[in-house]
């Protein structure tokens, strides 16, 4: 298979998902509202003490982003699995690893990137300073693609399985721990006036590791699902 055709196929698979997401804007909105609600629940639970909220802010925004991105994961393969598109992809002569990578990329653009963009608004609720806000943006920008990549494995594994949604969270959330630690850690460090560079480098390293392993595992899982 020559490479222009492959690029064409990857581009088409990505744009197909973006187009479908665009025509289902309500889903995107649900994810964003969920993100905002989860983050807003914490002050209601622990009280409105500004000093405490400032301390908790980075962690809360990151946990909320993580949960929201997990909520969106079920949409990554479910409709393709239901209407037979996924088995057609599995039968494409193009490498399935790259096809699912294109799908994951489109999914991140449609559900991860909007989270990153509205995160500073939630940061304001927790009184993060300007530097911390910038680091929050950078950490989410580096971290949420990793969440989508790891989550794609779980989403493919739970296709057509009983209790898929709850099972997906059980599979995926423990794997999200390092991203959460370095992501929230970066913002905390910056809020405390320290350098967040090390955290961000580690987030970048996690993204690279996920880019190498996750699409492969996702492709294997998709093949298992369409058997």
């Amino acid at each position: 298979m020559n490479s222009p055709r492959l690029m064409d196929a990857l581009w088409t698979v990505g744009t197909r998902d973006l187009l479908a997401a665009l025509r289902h804007r309500a889903d995107l909105l649900t994810t964003l509202v969920f993100f905002a609600i989860v983050a807003s629940l914490f002050p209601l639970g622990v009280g409105s003490d500004t000093a405490l909220l400032r301390l908790m802010g980075p962690g809360v925004v990151w946990v909320a982003a993580l949960l929201a991105s997990m909520l969106a994961l079920t949409r990554l393969f479910a409709s393709d699995y239901g209407d037979g598109t996924l088995e057609q992809l599995a039968l494409s002569p193009h490498p399935l690893t790259l096809l699912v990578l294109a799908k994951t990329g489109a999914h991140w653009l449609a559900s991860g990137l909007p989270l990153v963009i509205i995160a500073p608004l939630l940061g304001l609720q927790f009184d993060l300073n300007a530097d911390a806000q910038l680091v929050l943006l950078a950490s989410l920008l580096l971290g949420t693609p990793t969440l989508s990549l790891i989550g794609a494995v779980g989403a493919a594994l739970t296709l057509g399985v009983r209790g898929g949604g709850a099972l997906l969270s059980l599979l995926v959330l423990p794997l999200y721990v390092p991203v959460l630690i370095f992501g929230a850690g970066a913002v905390e460090a910056s809020a405390a006036g320290l350098d967040a560079g090390a955290h961000l480098s580690l987030l970048g390293a996690l993204l690279l590791v996920a880019l190498v392993f996750a699409p492969w595992a996702t492709a294997v899982s998709v093949r298992i699902a369409v058997e």
């Binding site: 479908a20 409709s79 393709d80 209407d83 037979g84 598109t85 088995e87 057609q88 039968l91 002569p93």
Partner: peptide
């Protein structure tokens, strides 16, 4: 796969 065309029970047609 580059010599195969398959059509299953599911059409692979997206509603959107």
């Amino acid at each position: 796969r580059s010599e195969l065309a398959f059509l299953g029970h599911l059409s692979g047609v997206k509603d959107e």
